Amino acid sequence: MSKDEIIASVTERLRETPTGDLFRCSTAWFMAPVAEDDLPAKPEARYDSALTPEGHEGHRSGETDPAAWARLNELRDRLKAEAHIVTRNLVETLRAWYPSADALEMYENEDGWLLTVRLVSADGRTVRDLRNDVGLPTDLPELPEPVRALWPKRMLQEVEDLDELLTVLAKAGVGFDDLPDELRDNNDCPDLYIPALLLGTACELGC
């Protein structure tokens, strides 16, 4: 199976997820190298063998595979590792866009989506308000040359693209930090977990 076929297949499977068409294609694009390494020469045969009596020996319909759990765990670990690489790419991109920002503040809505709130500086100042429900501009800056090669074309153009990316990363196993007290708004509850992607030199993820 070629990489183009893998991308098309992953994109089709992602149509059932609550993401935009552009981001489905982008997700398939960066997942393709992982999938390409693990797929056999005829991946359809492995899938169909679990459903039809004509499957290969040891993989006939109704039979179990003791190695399946190990393979699933391996794929999960590899997906999480790839997601951390994409997260580091995002950190570099945000640093290039907003050099004075120290963290990206987010919140999780009732549907489990991570939505951006603002980029905040080390002294707690709002560098950019990213809420897309208050009538603010939603365009993201053009990707500068050093980080342009990290992303597919037409990706990360709107704040909504950033929201979708963060949600996919979280579902792939990336854990985000709690926004430090010194970066919080005065109205924030001090005991409330506020997910954040830290961009400064002291950050744990992405550095």
Rank of each mutant, 00 (worst) to 15 (best):
Trp97Tyr: 13
Ala122Thr: 05
Val86Cys: 04
Trp113Asn: 08
Asp123Ile: 11
Thr93Gly: 07
Met106Ile: 03
Asp102Leu: 01
Thr126Asp: 03
Arg118Phe: 02
Leu104Ala: 11
Ile85Asp: 09
Glu108Gly: 07
Val134Phe: 01
Asp77Trp: 02
Ala81Trp: 05
Leu79Met: 13
Ala81Asn: 11
Thr87Ile: 03
Gly112Ala: 10
Thr126Gln: 06
Glu82Arg: 14
Asn132Ser: 15
Lys80Met: 14
Gly112Arg: 09
Trp69Ile: 15
Tyr98Gln: 09
Leu115Ile: 11
Leu75Asp: 01
Arg128Phe: 00
Val134Ala: 12
Leu104His: 01
Thr87Ser: 09
Ala122His: 01
Arg95Lys: 15
Ala122Lys: 09
Thr87His: 00
Val117Met: 13
Leu72Asn: 05
Leu75Gln: 06
Tyr107Arg: 12
Ala103Arg: 02
Ala101Ile: 07
Trp69Val: 14
Leu114Thr: 00
Arg88Met: 08
Glu105Val: 15
Arg128Asn: 08
Ala122Met: 05
Leu114Trp: 01
Asp77Lys: 06
Met106Arg: 02
Arg76Ile: 15
Leu90Cys: 09
Arg88Gln: 11
Thr87Trp: 00
Ile85Asn: 06
Leu75Thr: 09
Glu92Lys: 14
Tyr107Cys: 10
Val91Tyr: 02
Asn89Ala: 13
Leu90Gln: 01
Asp111Trp: 05
Ala68Gln: 12
Ala68Ile: 14
Trp113Gly: 00
Gly112Gln: 09
Asp133Val: 09
Leu104Val: 11
Arg78Ala: 13
Val86Asn: 00
Leu79His: 04
Ala101His: 02
Arg71Thr: 13
Arg76Met: 13
Ala101Glu: 02
Glu110Val: 14
Leu75Ser: 03
Thr87Asp: 02
Leu104Cys: 08
Asn89Asp: 14
Arg71Glu: 14
Gly112Leu: 08
Val127Phe: 01
Glu92Val: 04
Arg128Ala: 03
Tyr107Pro: 00
Glu108Gln: 15
Thr93Val: 04
Ala67Asn: 09
Ala70Gly: 09
Glu105Asp: 06
